[in-house]
């Protein structure tokens, strides 16, 4: 019996380490320790063993069983290691480039717009939106730009034929003509008419000018305007906002300055210059960045806000121009060509 057991262990220690697959392993396991296995068969012979030898024999069988179990466990470990190695395959070359295109990129105009919106959101402005097809009232009349004003010339503004109808752009007067908005200020009017003071909005969006396209002009471009309406708003508040915006955008030490100017819908009105020393590709001390002013009382009257109670300011700028200044881009047409080599530079 003992020699049989020893032979069994010897057999197991040669066969089990050589196993290559799980079915082989399962078959071998059954062969040795399964219900019909050899060890089980030997254990069944215990009945024939004289009673006084049984404890010693039992002990021997248990030892044999433990030895085979150790061999089985080792074989399983080897097998599992081999399986994982097969699953893994050879090591990768981590220096190979990824064949997947990407990552995706936001357009630089979106990046600049969103950055401006974030800066303004921190001081309580929310983003307003309005139609690009507008009417004369919202684009001009309500903004104190009367019918005889040169800005309304068909020479500078895209108009639609009188027969054109836009189902979701509301007119103030039935005889108004539809046009493509020349500034996002029309959003201010729609927002003021819809809401009530105090309010604080930023309206970024696409605008249109009937103009020759060149390195600095484009048939459509984007503006961003702020409108602040509250009680006791002052010129100094407006200057503080501009300083805040550009310090946030370009870092501490960035300065703005106002120059008096004229816009129909603000009084007083200013052009805003930005200190430009640290900007790329600018060889001037100051560069013009936008226009602003205190909302003209006549605009408040048009939207039904009492100008004796409500005051406010407005500020507007071109997003392409801002992006060109920030990134050092020297041709506005690059924004609209979408050459991937351009788009990938700003993510």
């Amino acid at each position: 019996m003992q020699s049989t057991l020893n032979a069994l262990v010897a057999k197991a220690s040669t066969e089990l380490p050589a196993l290559k697959t799980r079915p082989e392993f399962e078959a071998a396991k059954a062969r040795f320790v399964g219900p019909n296995g050899e060890l089980t068969a030997l254990m069944k012979q215990m009945g024939a063993v004289p009673k006084e030898e049984r404890p010693a024999m039992g002990k021997l069988i248990n030892e044999t069983k433990a030895q085979i179990q150790v061999l089985l466990d080792a074989a399983l470990r080897t097998l599992e290691t081999a399986e994982i190695a097969a699953q893994l395959g050879p090591a990768v070359d981590p220096t190979l480039p990824s064949p997947d295109a990407g990552p995706g990129t936001y357009h630089p105009l979106t990046l600049v717009r969103e950055e401006m919106c974030r800066i303004l959101h921190k001081v309580g402005f929310s983003v307003a939106d309005g139609p690009e097809v507008e009417t004369e009232f919202y684009c001009f009349d309500a903004l104190n730009t009367p019918a005889d004003h040169p800005a309304r010339d068909a020479q500078d503004t895209f108009y639609f034929p009188e027969s054109a109808r836009f189902g979701n752009v509301s007119k103030k007067n039935p005889e108004e003509k539809y046009l493509l908005r020349t500034h996002t200020s029309s959003v201010q009017i729609r927002t003021m008419l819809k809401g009530s003071p105090p309010l604080r909005i930023v309206s970024p969006g696409r605008v249109y000018r009937r103009d020759t396209s060149d390195a600095s002009h484009s048939a459509n471009f984007h503006q961003l305007e702020c409108l602040y309406v509250d009680k006791n708003v002052t010129v100094r508040d407006l200057k503080a906002l501009l300083d805040y915006i550009f310090e946030s955008l370009l870092g501490a030490g960035t300065k703005t300055r106002f120059r008096p100017h004229y816009f129909g819908y603000t009084e007083p009105s200013f052009e805003v210059d930005l200190s430009a020393k640290h900007l790329p590709k600018v060889n001037k001390e100051w560069i013009e960045i936008g226009g602003c002013g205190m909302v003209d009382p006549s605009v408040f009257e048009t939207v039904g806000y009492d100008p004796k109670v409500w005051t406010g300011y407005a500020f507007g700028m071109g997003l392409e121009r801002l992006a060109m200044i920030l990134y050092g881009i020297d041709d506005i047409r690059y924004f609209y060509q979408n050459d991937l080599r351009f788009l990938k530079q700003f993510a």
Partner: peptide, 30 residues
């Protein structure tokens, strides 16, 4: 208001004093 502009022009718009941006709580939804 038109006279405010005249006074400011001759005072010098470069001299508008700095200030902290005024932002009393008022947050609309985008």
């Amino acid at each position: 208001i038109d006279l405010v502009e005249e006074v400011l022009r001759l005072y010098g718009t470069e001299k508008i004093p700095a200030a902290v941006v005024s932002a009393p709580g008022l947050v609309g939804e985008d």
